[in-house]
Design a protein around this nucleic acid. Structure first.
Lengths: 116, 116
DNA sequence: CAGTTATATAACCTTTTAGTTAAATATTTG
DNA sequence: CAAATATTTAACTAAAAGGTTATATAACTG
């Protein structure tokens, strides 16, 4: 398991089952059984996914009779978004054009740089 | 390796070495050797990290004599940001307060629900 | 063309991940 | 308290991840 928080958050998110669980939880708190329903997967497998999400701080669990309802804790997603912000300029279309411009000017692509 | 694009992007990002490589590339295109310099890690290890980043579409490589300079390709980061947007409301402070309010009103935390 | 530099691949090892089934635990209900 | 329900833990397996060293490839340089 990785030490830093951002890594464990990203690692937890890098699984479609876990992202689907978060999407369900965005609709509201619910039980493990209901979270498991959409998946062709054993209960213990879901339980492990929930453990990963909990370890990453993305969900928290309470108690309701036999049920252990889960709820979304989105704070770590905010940290991911904050990390991503530093790169926003790189994927904005305006920057793509800026980047092309800089490469032309600086000639980093060589004198015959692909003009597109 | 996971099938969907978002998963492989998040998986590629879930490693501090690879994120550091991206941070370096945000300063501009550079060689594998220079990317490797800050890390106490063999060349092949870095080469593998670059392969993971390339497979996720986060970098692309060109040729400059013996060098294979890498450059940042931030488009997949944009996809991550787009995915995250759906959750922004959940980590904004205003929502946290709204959520507390809803729990009090609906009594989901039980009649003696933790008031704090 | 021999040597050097830069990088990639092969083969291997260890740890982690993601799943399984069977058994244990916690809680409610009759 | 026995049975039922909801979930977790244990033990196991297979595959993937992340690292290593040794070797191969590609391109330049004398």
């Amino acid at each position: 398991m990785r030490a830093d928080h951002l890594s464990s958050t990203l690692s937890a998110l890098a699984d479609p089952t876990r992202r689907a669980i978060l999407a369900r939880l965005a609709l509201g708190e619910t039980s493990v059984a209901e979270l498991a329903r959409p998946f062709d997967m054993s209960g213990p497998a879901i339980s492990k996914h929930l453990k990963v999400l909990e370890a990453a701080g993305l969900i928290s669990r309470s108690r309701d009779a036999q049920r252990r309802p889960c709820r979304l804790n989105a704070a770590p997603l905010g940290e991911v978004a904050a990390w991503l912000e530093r790169y926003r300029v790189f994927w904005d279309a305006s920057f793509d054009r800026l980047d092309d411009y800089l490469r032309q000017v600086q000639g980093n692509g060589g004198p015959h740089g692909e003009r597109q």
